[in-house]
């Protein structure tokens, strides 16, 4: 039950984009079309789930054991970069179409702060349970996907609207993102852990 609540709170209440403000770069950059936004979401989900699992193991069985936990930032960055490379190679071989669709965004996940954010939050809050860490990671990624797909849907529709010249493009997108963030505030208090 606790695990489900952690998942839901990561998706809705503590949505990574909307309330933690992590992963804003792809949120704005890859949200012009629902299709690519969804592809990005899937890629991020994949990397976040893997990164949560691997960083949990490395943190508990290497960093804590050797008493060098202060190195967690560097270690996590190393892990994420390695994982993204691996995922990229694997996708290129196994699914060229998905690889093409994700394009430049796949390597960009390396520097996506949401991924580092989820591993750091896992370490701070859920360093005692492997399952909880992974569930929190997946939940955060699903929340990211939800936010970016919703946002892309709105932006697709805005394309056809009569927007004043000064607001065209990113200004109106930023205003929309702000309004969406306020809307997500409505989930506050939905789940009490």
């Amino acid at each position: 039950m606790q695990v489900i609540l952690i998942f839901l709170s990561a998706v809705l209440v503590n949505n990574f984009v909307m309330s933690r403000f992590l992963g804003i770069c792809p949120f704005l950059g890859v949200s012009k079309k629902v299709e690519t936004a969804f592809g990005m979401g899937v890629a991020v989900t994949f990397v976040m789930a893997l990164a949560s699992a691997v960083t949990f193991l490395v943190y508990n069985f290497i960093l804590v054991k050797l008493e060098i936990t202060y190195l967690y930032n560097i270690a996590f960055i190393l892990i994420i970069a390695g994982l993204v490379q691996l995922v990229e190679m694997y996708l290129k071989k196994s699914s060229p179409t998905l690889y093409q669709a994700l394009g430049i965004y796949l390597p960009l996940i390396t520097t996506n702060c949401a991924v580092l954010g989820v591993t750091v939050l896992n370490m701070e809050n859920y360093s005692d349970s492997f399952l909880t860490s992974v569930v929190h990671g997946v939940g955060a990624a699903v929340g990211f996907t939800l936010a970016i797909v919703l946002f892309a849907g709105i932006r697709e529709r805005m394309e056809h609207n009569n927007i004043p010249a000064a607001f065209k493009g990113f200004p109106i997108a930023l205003i929309t993102a702000g309004l969406m963030s306020i809307a997500f505030l409505g989930f506050t208090g939905l789940i009490r852990l």
């Binding site: 290497i62 560097i74 490379q85 190679m89 071989k93 196994s94 060229p96």
Partner: peptide
């Protein structure tokens, strides 16, 4: 040692994966 070892491990793993998943 720990970070260097991890880096080495990832490096070896990636180069092996590079051969495995060569297109």
């Amino acid at each position: 040692l720990a970070l260097g070892g991890m880096g080495l491990l990832f490096g070896v793993g990636l180069s092996y994966a590079g051969i495995m998943f060569k297109v």
